[in-house]
Design a protein around this nucleic acid. Structure first.
Length: 678
RNA sequence: GGCGAGGUAGCUCAGGUGGUUAGAGCGCAUGAUUCAUAAUCAUGAGGUCGGGAGUUCAAGUCUCCCUCUCGCUACCA
């Protein structure tokens, strides 16, 4: 592997989807690390740009719009505004925060599609999809509801049943209904374009598995998993009226699939930012870094690079430092369950405390595995680290300087060996931070950065200026000069992590330097230079504030535990309809797990008049060895179906709780095998 | 079931190519100290490195089996 010398860096951060506000998971996984990285490079005076924006297409946005009776544009306008402002208020320093619904992006995505189309990259395929004749439109999976074939939930979507969690395809649904017109959709042929990922598989294997072994284990492993399983062509278009129209003849009513256009948003945003955009996207001397969460690995490591490669003139990402997920108080963050800490709410509840959250999310970032955010930990890190270590050191240095030298930086008289060692340590620490940042190890970086404040505290404890002042005031001059030089160095070293606080600290010190190259200097503050009276850099966070946040989450939990609204009753049927079902009492004779499956159990059931083999997905709730002898209710005249190669002759009735757990509908002991259930 | 990532001190995590008494921060205990937001500094206690077997002179680090967590995937009549 050759180490390339790069002239510039292009940093992209995953485009947040504009159908909801930002939460801590987004920040910890993507935006805090990318912002630290970008601020660091800027401070080093490197040529770097940071790109982000709202991802505004796709079906979920149209659904949200429909639900609220507004247009998709209004939905994305709302969340784009909220999120853009939240990022700004939080100090995420994108060079541009654009959006995919704007003109530049439409043009850029269209051009790239067109180029690939003209090159003959795509495969065209015709398939049958549901079509709403009344609304004269094809229906996206999410626009179709029907009865889930698995659990009978009458409100299942065309792509997933939210009750049992099964992923579905629209044609699986029983009694499909269009959510647009309420009519019954028909199957109609439609043409789509596919990106043949399979053809690029050999190249991807070489590029990732051979040339990028340095990628993080979670990223590399995920890619390997996909590549080993074999790639398949992926549709790049959809029948939908919200998005970027497919820019070719005869593609009316079709738009680019959102995952195709979203990453191109990075390119569009760069175009919008600078006329020099090609230098960032097409020059081999540019290093492109994608900051993303683990859910985006396949798109940024496999799909998007394939698009860029197929297009031919673009560079590929040099690294994709994807993070894992952040949990909240021991539970997965979930927008639909409102289990989250929303950024805009945090900013209201903790005004002026952006850096505290930046610090906690960085120090506890889910870099190698899923991590947990707890409010207690948030409080502890603020009180025991930011306040006690960093804030306290600054306070000590400033207070002592005012107490003994009227707020003027004293001069160095004589340097002891300890002084020299302490000053030398500054640079060593800085090099450690650099090393960590260059390798995207942000939690290690921030910890190493804090070591400089620890060094300051130790230095003061060792030299004891409050004692020495009585016997040797000249010595104290040197001690405080060094303490203040450490403080000034801290403003430089921690600026990428804690920009607000370091700005404040520069104010305290009346220090204006910002360049990373100054770090290690022993004369950032000249003797005689006046500094401001000390005020606090960080404040303690009291238990009450934390309790308030915990109460908020508890309320959410209680709301979530309220009984689920019973699914609406299905449409009325006649007695004849009912009598068509042949329900029987039976007894399980034998049961065994179906090999190589997680849920399936194969049973032999005695129905009195005959014995049936029935396969059922209950292995997560019943062990096979407890089943023989159990009385069950069986739908006997259900058409047989092959499951995992075994013919299942009937269905065992099960009741399902809201949590998905299954329970047999058990006839009483006195019921005889084969007796009819009416 | 398949694939991937994880399971290391009370908590959150480090531990290239196997090699002296397994590390850090926080928490805890003891001592020092008072300039400082009861902050700081020092010292210490705490781990059979998920479990088992194997390779090796030597394994947290390699191999196999098992187990738990997370993700993708198959499967649920």
């Amino acid at each position: 592997m050759t180490v390339k010398a790069y002239k510039r860096t292009l940093v992209t951060s995953a485009l947040p989807y504009a159908n909801g506000p930002l939460h801590l998971g987004h920040l910890a996984g993507v935006y805090v690390p990318s912002d630290i990285y970008v601020r660091y490079l800027r401070q080093r005076d490197r040529d770097v740009i940071s790109i982000c924006g709202s991802d505004e297409h796709g079906v979920p946005i149209t659904l949200k719009a429909r639900k609220e009776g507004i247009s998709p544009q209004e939905v994305v306008d709302r969340y784009h505004a909220i999120n853009k402002k939240a990022f700004e208020d939080f100090g995420i320093s994108f060079d541009i925060y654009s959006r995919t619904s704007n003109q530049v992006h439409h043009e850029t995505a269209s051009e790239i599609f067109k180029t690939l189309y003209d090159k003959g990259v795509f495969i065209e395929k015709t398939s049958e999809q549901y079509y709403d004749e009344e609304a004269a439109t094809f229906l996206a999976d999410r626009y179709i509801t029907g009865t889930c074939p698995h659990c009978g939930n009458p409100c299942a979507y065309g792509d997933q049943c939210e009750q049992c969690g099964t992923s579905l395809s629209p044609t699986d649904l029983v009694n499909p209904v269009s959510t647009i017109s309420g009519s019954k959709p028909i199957l109609k042929e439609t043409k789509h374009w596919y990106l043949p990922l399979d053809k690029y598989e050999p190249w991807l294997k070489e590029w990732i598995l051979e040339e990028h072994k340095e990628w993080k284990p979670n990223v590399y492993g995920q890619c390997k998993s996909w590549l080993d399983q074999g790639l398949h062509p992926r549709a790049v278009s959809r029948d939908l009226d919200w998005g970027i129209p497919v820019p070719i003849e005869g593609a009316d009513g079709k738009v680019l699939y959102v995952w195709f256009d979203a990453p191109i948003g990075y390119i569009s945003a760069t175009k919008e930012l600078t006329p020099d955009w090609e230098k960032y996207w097409k020059d081999e001397e540019t290093r492109m870094i994608h900051f993303i969460g683990k859910d985006n690995i396949v798109f940024h490591c496999i799909v998007f690079p394939t698009i860029l490669k197929a297009e031919g003139s673009y560079i590929l990402p040099e690294n994709v430092p994807a993070n894992e997920f952040l949990n909240l108080e021991n539970d997965k963050i979930s927008t639909s369950r409102n289990w989250a800490v929303w950024l805009h709410e945090y900013l209201e509840d903790f005004p002026g405390k952006q850096d505290v959250l930046r610090y906690v999310l960085c120090a506890n970032a889910p870099e190698s595995k899923d991590n947990d955010f707890t409010w207690k930990d948030f409080q502890n890190r603020n009180n025991n680290e930011l306040v006690a270590v960093l804030g306290n050191f600054i306070n000590r240095a400033l207070v002592l300087t005012h107490k003994y030298f009227e707020g003027k930086v004293p001069e160095i008289t004589t340097l002891t060996e300890q002084d020299k060692a302490t000053l030398a340590e500054i640079l060593t620490i800085a090099q450690g931070v650099e090393e960590s940042l260059e390798h995207f190890r942000f939690r290690e970086a921030i910890k190493r950065g804090m070591d400089l404040a620890r060094l300051g505290n130790k230095y003061l404890a060792d030299t004891e200026p409050w004692k020495v002042i009585k016997t040797d005031p000249d010595r104290v001059k040197t001690i405080l000069n060094i303490s203040l030089q450490i403080s000034a160095n801290l403003t430089l070293l921690l600026d990428p992590f804690l920009p607000y606080s370091m700005e404040k600290l520069r104010g305290f010190l009346r220090f204006e330097g910002t360049s990373w190259d100054l770090i290690g200097s022993e004369s950032l503050l000249a003797p005689g230079h006046s500094i401001e009276k000390a005020s606090l850099l960080f404040e303690k966070i009291e238990d009450e504030q934390i309790q308030l946040q915990l109460d908020k989450l508890n309320r959410t939990k209680e709301e979530n535990e309220e009984p689920v609204v019973a699914s609406p009753q299905k449409e009325e049927i006649t007695f004849d309809d009912f009598t068509r079902m042949d329900l029987r009492t039976g007894t399980i004779l034998e049961a065994e797990k179906v090999p190589k499956t997680k849920k399936l159990i194969k049973m032999l059931v005695d129905l009195g008049f005959e014995k049936r083999t029935i396969v059922s997905g209950i292995a997560e709730y019943y062990e096979p060895d407890v089943l023989p002898g159990k009385k069950v209710s069986v739908l006997a005249n259900l058409a047989p179906r092959k499951i995992k190669g075994i013919e299942s002759q009937g269905m065992i009735l099960l009741s399902e709780n809201p949590d998905g757990s299954l329970h047999f509908v058990e006839p009483s002991e006195s019921a005889v095998n084969g007796s009819e259930i009416n």
